[in-house]
Structure formats: C-alpha cells, structure tokens
Design a protein around this nucleic acid. Structure first.
Lengths: 243, 243
DNA sequence: ACCTGAACACCGTTCAAGT
DNA sequence: ACCTGAACACCGTTCAAGT
C-alpha cells in the first residue's frame, strides 16, 4: 500500500538505478558512432541495440523504423551547419555556407550516401536554413521563377559535390575492386587515351571516376574551391542577365 | 541410346531444351528490371534468382557479389551516355553531355542512389568518356591543375544534380513521412519564415528539401537547365581568368 | 562448366508479455 | 511507459554435391 502511494506521490521512479534509461538522443548518438566506425553497409539496428546493452526491439519504442533513425542521424550530424551571420555580399555568405557544410560532412563521411541520394533526410535540418537562403537570394535580386531556380541550384551545388566526394567505397571485395581499377589505370595507353595518359599522375586517386579512395582519405580541396567559384560566378552572371 | 549419341556428337547440348541458360547479361537485365520496378530498398539477389527461375546461389557463378552486380547494373543502364559527336564550342558539347546523362538516368531513376553515393560504379562506363572530357577541356584552354579542377567540376556537376533530383523516397513508412513534411510546410508562418511563406506555392514539391516526390514524378527541368548554365558560364569565367 | 541444395550467420519488424 | 523475449519472414554468402 505504502509503496503504491509513494509511487503515485513521489518523483519519477527512475526504474532501476543502473538501468539503460533509453532515449532517442542516446540511440541516435550510439547509432552515429557506429556509422562513423563501420560504415552504412554494415550498419544494423541490432548492433545499435547491442552497443546500448538492450534488446533490438527496445529501439522501436523510441524510433519508428530504420529509415527514420537514419534521418535522425543525419539531422544530428549536421546540426551545426546553421548559417553563418550575415556578411555584406551574398557570394561571401554562400561561400561560407558551402565550406561549413562540407566541413561538417567531413566529420562524419559515412553519412554521405544518406544526404544526397535519399529523400528521407530532407527537412531534418529544419526550415531555418531554407529561409535564410531564400531571403539571401531575394536580397541579391533573384525574383519569381529565377529565385526558385537559383535556390535549387544552390542546394544541388551544396549537397552534390560533397555527396560525390565522400561516396562510400564498396564494403565487400574492396581489394578486388581496387586492384581492377588500378590495373585499368596502369594499362592506359597514350595511343588510345592521349590526354588521360598525359595527366594520369595528377588524376589518379585525385579525380572522380579515377580514384579508389574517397574524400575521407583523399580530400578534393582544390576541386571543391573551384566548384564553389564556378557556381558563384555563374549565379552572378545569371543575375546580371535577368535584369 | 540414340539420344545419348546425339548428345555426344551433335553441337553444344544446350543442357535442357528450356533450361535457364544463365549468363551475366541475363542476370544484369533481370536485376535492372527488378530495380526499376521495386527500388533499391527492396532489391535482393534472391528475387533476381526467382525472376530467372534459378537457385539464389546460381548467380555466384556469374557475378562475384551483390555490390559487383549493382555496379554492372549501373554500367548497363548508362551504356548509351557515350559522348555526342564533336560540336564547335566546348560549352555546347558539355551542355549536350549533361542533358544526355540526365535523360538516361531518368529512364532508370532507381539507380540514382548508386551513381553519386557509391564509389563502386566508378569506372563502369569505361574511360572513353573521361578521355573525351579531358580532351575537350584541354582544347578549351584548361591546363595543368586548372584542367584537373575543371574535370572534377564537370563530373560533380554532371552527377551531383541528377543524384539529388532522383534521390529515392523512403520505402518504409512513406505515408507518415509525407504527412509530416506536408504538415511542416502547411504550418509555415510568414512571421517566422517570410520569404519561404511567400514563395511556398512555387516551392512545395518543386524544390529540394521541400518536396515529397523525386524527379521521377516531379522533374526539375527548369532548375536543371539553370544549373547547367550556371556551371558553364562559371567555367568560362574561370577560363578567362586563368589566361 | 554450371547449377542444385543445404546450411550459416545474419537482418528489420511485429506482437505478446512482463514490470 | 518502457523494455523483454519469442517469433516471422526474410537476407547475402559459403561450400559440398550433383551433372
């Protein structure tokens, strides 16, 4: 009797002293940690549960399913991409946004296959950033359909390059795959592929399609900066023409 | 008796009359067909085997593993992206390349998560296209590090936008996910997100992050064309500066 | 050479049961 | 409310065996 009363009146019981005390935040943190270490191909809910010392099915109280958890992981990993404070020129602001985004993804490269190629992680970051980009482009002078297009160009540029740069290597049979690629490259003849043969030293493992490591091991810094400048000056050109 | 002799002497026995007669080409074709209809999330080797009327393990004689098969699928789906014949200006050629690439991906939208986000499909298309792009950029005037950067910019642009545009919606719980997104958008207040609220009709389901269908149902034609022009004029600008 | 067939070590998810 | 525990319907892959 007393205990029942105490339960009803006292503060929250805390279950047991050293109970796992699961929560969505803990699950997401453990899952991101696992994803960082093992990659998406070997990521499983059962491993997450194991890491938390809990039954696999316990996760389902806090998370609806695997895809939803993956979306939460992405949102959590990118929570600090929040836009920088206003700078004068819109180009400076966008440049900073692109760099910050890449910097955050680089901290958790294994989320790359989840950001560009899956719609699930869409609005995870909230609409704050969307509003800021729209306001910025509006302020720069984009209007109507031009603004919609410019917005899509910005997002595609922001996410596209980074998704490619950190694309995950195959988990299974990586050695065979690497070997095949290296053999393919080393057998390049200047008679059949003259330009490729000439530039091969600068291109091998440092250019898309011709690499066997991703941005986690071989960051494409120079290419990324070029990409930013191309997009920014291209946008500026479009703005000039639209008036 | 007769049959046995005929078997030994006659041309290749064909095993049985209506035998599956498996081959890598047949497997890839069946697999792509399945991928087109069901999506990557529900794609399985066992289903491929079922479609071919064969034991799952039979596939392993022709294909080393699942990832390798996925790479073959992508290569097969994009086999017609071969570069168009030479045009005068490098910009015209690249514009045509971008459009052709998107057109082919659009025929098999479910390969999108395999192209940008997985290194496995790297050199599947062969080095022919790489050589042509390099030669084109060299001819346009890019040299040394500028050429390497320009090449990476071109590939990132070519693959990036399309990967995003055809990013796959979540297979599980799609209704919940859609509902949540639509509710989030319909609750946008002009007091908190003024620009977003103003442009919401043009943006909803027609802009990255704010859509619940991908390019297969809602193609972003205008945005794609803008993206191309931004990249091309940006590259031209860089070329001007580099001399 | 090419496929069958059994087996292994996994999955995500549902649902009843406990506390 | 939150977790255990059993169970279901799957996976990819290895390996021996058949023909």
């Amino acid at each position: 009797m007393k205990t029942i009363v105490a339960k009803k009146i006292g503060r929250r019981p805390k279950r047991k002293a050293n109970s796992p005390d699961l929560s969505k935040a803990k699950i997401v943190a453990a899952a991101l940690n696992l994803l960082d270490r093992r990659g998406l191909d070997s990521f499983s809910l059962r491993d997450v549960a194991r890491a938390l010392g809990v039954y696999p099915t316990a996760l389902y109280w806090h998370v609806p399913n695997r895809n939803a958890l993956l979306a939460e992981i992405v949102a959590h990993a990118l929570r600090h991409v929040s836009p920088p404070t206003d700078a004068g020129d819109w180009r400076i602001w966008l440049r900073e946004l692109f760099r910050r985004y890449r910097r955050e993804v680089r901290r958790h490269p294994n989320i790359a296959p989840l950001i560009g190629a899956r719609l699930v992680s869409n609005a995870g970051a909230g609409l704050e950033l969307v509003e800021r980009i729209l306001a910025l482009l509006d302020g720069a002078g984009f209007r109507g359909r031009s603004l919609v297009d410019a917005y899509n160009v910005v997002i595609a540029a922001k996410v596209g390059f980074v998704t490619l740069e950190f694309a995950t290597p195959p988990a299974k049979g990586i050695d065979d795959w690497k070997g095949a690629l290296e053999r393919q490259l080393s057998s390049v003849q200047s008679s059949t592929y003259p330009t490729l043969a000439r530039y091969l030293p600068e291109l091998a493992n440092r250019a898309f399609i011709l690499r066997w490591e991703n941005g986690a091991d071989q960051p494409l810094d120079a290419a990324f900066e070029s990409f930013i400048e191309v997009v920014l000056s291209g946008l500026a050109e479009r703005l000039r023409k639209s008036r």
